[in-house]
């Protein structure tokens, strides 16, 4: 499981890869929120390389989305594979955090 955070001129991009299971989330959660929250700016999360997401992974994303929303910034996810989309659909997470196909869509969504 890896996390790469970059700044795309005013938009934070967090690139996750691997399995977002309990063990990996325990290891990564602090790094993720420390990388995303203090900037308080629109954030896009790249899930292209994420193969699985457990309930703690959903919590990590939801906590960040709620925190950013309180500071007036949006979080949008993109690139999720069908298995991950299925997990989001089951929990209706996409009603709370938008999930779009591509990075360009995500940038458009957080900027809008």
């Amino acid at each position: 499981m890896t996390l790469v955070i970059t700044d795309l001129s005013g938009v934070t991009k967090a690139e996750l890869s691997g399995r977002l299971d309990t063990a990996n989330v325990n290891e990564l959660e602090l790094k993720f929120s420390a990388g995303v929250m203090p900037k308080s700016q629109p954030t896009i999360v790249d899930l292209t390389q994420v193969t699985f997401i457990a309930s703690l992974g959903i919590r990590m994303l939801l906590t960040a989305a709620r925190g950013l929303s309180r500071r007036g910034a949006k979080l949008v996810m993109f690139g999720a594979n069908p298995a991950v989309i299925e997990i989001f659909e089951m929990s209706a997470l996409s009603d709370i955090i938008p999930v779009v196909p591509t990075e360009a869509d995500a940038i458009a969504a957080v900027s809008g």
């Binding site: 959903i58 939801l62 709620r66 659909e89 929990s91 209706a92 009603d95 709370i96």
Partner: peptide, 14 residues
């Protein structure tokens, strides 16, 4: 047996 509803506690007024 499933209804598509959000996670409880994730967002108010759903």
């Amino acid at each position: 047996l499933h209804t598509r509803n959000p996670i409880i506690g994730a967002m108010p007024a759903m």
